[in-house]
């Protein structure tokens, strides 16, 4: 099998430069590529564009890059949990493009699948549709949306093998599979890396062809954003 393993996050992030566009998996803080984010902070790459559903919280996730003013532009669907984000956006330091969540997912999928553009009804008649081509299908108006164009996709899976095959867990799956193969280089970090052959091919969510580099992540914090419980 083709071996996609790299020894650590440093090697995995090789080639990352100022001004690049990154995709980052995760929904809220669930399923975010914690190791890659920490490395991007360490490398101090500047003026980057981040495509990610959310922007983390003030002191975790993409919030760490925001603190250091590394992000020039965010493309997200919901950014409500981050005060520093709001401050940078309102002061004009940060460029923000808010797009519907389903459109965000489909633009990733389109990039992964070689579909340059597609029509969706989401956002028609709203400010999201301003300046976009629209067309009627079956009596309903739709907007033309384009595939993303990114340099790196950073995703996080539960298990992976040396061939780059990935299995996700629970709702930590979210945008991660859609971003695999949607950028020039896809970097997957996993909680458990096993030799090729150990994962059941029937259970694989993302085949290794969509992944260029895979590494065993470490020290996952897996922070919970809204801890809600019921009494026994």
């Amino acid at each position: 099998m083709i071996n996609k393993t790299v020894k650590d996050v440093t090697t995995a992030c090789k080639g990352v430069k100022d001004g690049m566009t990154f995709m980052l998996g995760g929904f809220g803080l669930s399923g975010i590529p914690e190791n890659a984010i920490a490395q991007l902070v360490k490398l101090n790459v500047k003026q980057v564009t981040c495509i990610s559903n959310n922007a983390g919280v003030d002191d975790f996730g993409l919030g760490l890059l925001l603190q250091k003013h590394q992000i020039k532009k965010m493309i997200s669907s919901y950014v409500g949990e981050n005060a520093e984000f709001e401050r940078q956006m309102l002061s004009g330091e940060l460029d923000v493009e808010l797009i519907p969540q389903g459109t965000l997912a489909q633009r990733c999928l389109a990039a992964q699948s070689g579909v340059p553009a597609f029509y969706t009804p989401a956002g028609y008649g709203t400010e999201v549709g301003e300046g976009k081509e629209s067309r009627e299908f079956n009596g309903k108006m739709h907007l033309l949306e384009h595939a993303f164009n990114a340099d790196f996709a950073f995703v996080k899976a539960w298990k992976g093998d040396t061939a780059g095959n990935l299995i996700f867990k629970g709702t930590a799956r979210n945008f991660n599979p859609n971003m695999c193969g949607a950028a020039t280089i896809t970097v997957a970090e996993v909680e458990e890396l096993v030799p090729a052959g150990e994962l059941d091919p029937n259970q694989i969510h993302i085949p290794g062809i969509f992944v260029q580099r895979i590494f065993q992540g470490e020290k996952y914090e897996k922070r919970i954003e809204q801890r809600t419980v019921r009494k026994k």
Binding site: F27, G28, L29, S30, G31, N53, E81, Q101, G102, L104, A105, Q106, C108, L109, W158, F168, K169, G170, T171, A172, R173, N174, F175, N176, P177, N178, H205, K222, R223, I224, E225, Q226, R227, T228, V229
Partner: peptide
Amino acid sequence: EDADLINAGKQTITAMKGASFFDSA
């Protein structure tokens, strides 16, 4: 509580019997 099991409000939840997980697309 499980960090890998949340709803769209980012609250921790549980999965019913017969539940399924899937990607955003």
